[in-house]
């Protein structure tokens, strides 16, 4: 009974499917980012209170959406990896983490840039920004644990446990932070979710959201591929050691 070492790092089907998707996703990203930014920067109206600064929202809000979605996606991949031991699942959670962290960072930076003209300060302990910051810490912890194990299969399991614990905790943290915020600064902060979002704002927002999504898919495919190749390289070196 010979062991095929390569079966653990040869997700051929994944590579085949992504090879088809990749050019479309890349093209869609460029197209949607172009249209979305055009609508966001030129077509959509100024806010009667915030003026042009409201346009930051089109970069900020979809980034915040993505930061949460990517974390959920990582949790699901981690669960799949733990339960079915699918090799691509672990790699995909690993590959997604830095992208999610970047979206979170983008949401934090744009949030704080937006805060300056609106609230007169770069950082407010607004519930959402705070939750976002904590989510950013969770991403950092996740990436740090991958770095800390020498054995990739162990790292995958440890990271999976961590991201699942984090995912269970995220709603609790969110709840506690919302609650903390209302306790400390009752409704002094103007936020965007008015009852009515006009379609002239909503349309570019959704376009930008979709653009971010396809950007994620594009970068994600590149990163997973890189991880798979990395894995193979490692295997080849090990095979050399055997001889």
């Amino acid at each position: 009974m010979a062991i095929d070492l390569h079966k653990f790092a040869n997700p051929a089907r994944f590579l085949r499917i992504t090879a088809v998707i990749f050019p479309w996703a890349a093209a869609l990203t460029l197209l949607l980012l172009g249209i979305g930014l055009y609508f966001a920067l030129f077509v959509s109206p100024e806010d009667y209170q915030q003026g042009n600064t409201v346009r930051i929202m089109f970069v900020h809000v979809p980034a915040a959406w993505m930061s949460m979605s990517v974390y959920s996606m990582m949790a699901i991949s981690a669960a799949v990896g733990l339960i079915w031991k699918h090799p691509v699942a672990d790699l995909s959670a690993k590959a997604a983490a830095p992208i999610g962290a970047c979206f979170t960072f983008l949401a934090l930076v744009t949030g704080s840039l937006w805060g300056q003209p609106m609230w007169g300060t770069f950082w407010v302990w607004d519930a959402r920004l705070t939750s976002m910051l904590i989510l950013f810490f969770l991403y950092l912890g996740y990436m740090a644990i991958w770095e800390s194990y020498d054995d990739p299969s162990k790292a995958a399991k440890a990271a999976a446990i961590l991201v699942l614990v984090g995912a269970i905790n995220v709603p609790v943290i969110k709840f506690s932070v919302d609650w903390w915020n209302t306790l400390h600064q009752p409704a002094s902060v103007a936020t965007m979710d008015g009852p009515k979002i006009h379609s002239s704002i909503l349309t570019p927002l959704l376009i930008m959201g979709t653009a971010y999504m396809s950007l994620f898919v594009t970068v994600f495919i590149i990163r997973v591929k890189a991880e798979i190749l990395n894995r193979r390289l490692r295997m080849m070196r090990l095979v050399q050691l055997e001889d």
Partner: peptide, 16 residues
């Protein structure tokens, strides 16, 4: 029966 062991992606022994 047929024990095989991989450590850090290295095959240590197989089919013991």
């Amino acid at each position: 029966r047929h024990l095989s062991c991989i450590r850090q992606d290295r095959l240590i022994f197989k089919n013991i």
